[in-house]
């Protein structure tokens, strides 16, 4: 396989891992985020610093990257997710900006805005695919578990679900923590793939892209979000020559999807159920 194709597949796996995380939060729990790049940044920097400066093996470093992101998610989720409304969305924008500023200004640890070079390129094709497959299996089981159904209940009607005895605030926070773990791992893998990371890579545009991919694929469909990632990642590669108009098209597509087909490509159905029963009732 050529290096270019291999690179695209690795990138696809990384993007899909992050998108699955955002999909759990936005698609299944109904919480909108505009700062998930911050969790990716934390994962990337944690893993980079651990492997380069402390000689930790990359595997625990990647997992620790995810764990640090989870810790931040807990800290930020507990005050904001108890409230209904757009509190988390706004806090997440602020969070994304603050994390980026800290990374840019904390010269002694992160080497500032010029970026962190010399990361061992540990994300090979098998590693990326391996992480993707394991995390995907876990996620597909999670959304059909008791917890996954509780998330959907919180999304659809939080009053009814709390009447049924679900602790909605806690479910929302746990959902955010799992989603932060996925993004942290994705960030750590990205660092290992590019072997160079920079705070500006994790700006608000990246956060927007993560959410947009999930919306495009279908809110409430895990296979849809993977499909959406594949489409967007490949289209981004195709659109490289006309990058000037890329963002305009991208924004317009987002609006048009919301106006014409807010449920995205897949709606809330999964690929498998669609193949088995193409005209069946909506699950």
């Amino acid at each position: 396989m050529s290096g270019y194709a291999e690179g695209i597949i690795i990138l696809l796996c990384i993007n899909a891992i992050a998108a699955m995380g955002v999909s759990l939060l936005t698609g299944f729990t109904g919480i909108f985020s505009l700062g998930h790049a911050a969790y990716m940044a934390l994962g990337a920097y944690t893993s980079a610093i651990l492997t380069v400066q402390h000689g930790v093996h990359f595997f625990p470093a990647i997992l620790l990257g995810g764990v640090v992101a989870v810790a931040l998610a807990y800290f930020i989720g507990v005050p904001t997710l108890r409230l209904m409304g757009d509190y988390y969305a706004i806090a997440s924008i602020g969070l994304g900006e603050a994390i980026r500023l800290i990374l840019e200004n904390w010269q002694s640890v992160t080497r500032g805005a010029r970026g962190y070079p010399g990361i061992d390129p540990y994300t090979s094709l098998p590693i990326a695919v391996g992480f993707f497959v394991i995390l995907a299996i876990f996620m597909f089981n999670l959304i059909n578990s008791r917890f996954g159904r509780a998330c959907k209940a919180c999304r659809d009607d939080y009053i009814a679900s709390s009447l049924l005895g679900f602790n909605t605030a806690r479910i929302r926070v746990v959902s955010l923590m799992i989603s932060a773990f996925y993004c942290g791992v994705a960030g750590a893998l990205l660092g290992g793939f590019l072997s160079f990371i920079q705070p500006v890579m994790f700006d608000m545009l990246k956060s927007t892209e993560l959410t947009a991919v999930v919306v495009f694929g279908g809110l409430g469909s895990m296979s849809g979000c993977i499909l959406g990632t594949a489409v967007i990642t490949l289209v981004t590669e195709l659109f490289r020559p006309i990058s000037q108009y890329r963002m305009l098209i991208y924004g317009a597509v987002l609006v048009i999807i919301m106006v014409l087909r807010p449920e995205g490509i897949m709606g809330n159905r999964e690929l498998l159920s669609w193949i088995k029963d193409p005209f069946g009732r909506r699950s």
Partner: peptide, 13 residues
């Protein structure tokens, strides 16, 4: 949520 996402799209546009 749909309005929120549409507004994000409009801001990019």
């Amino acid at each position: 949520l749909y309005l929120l996402i549409a507004s994000m799209g409009m801001s990019i546009v």
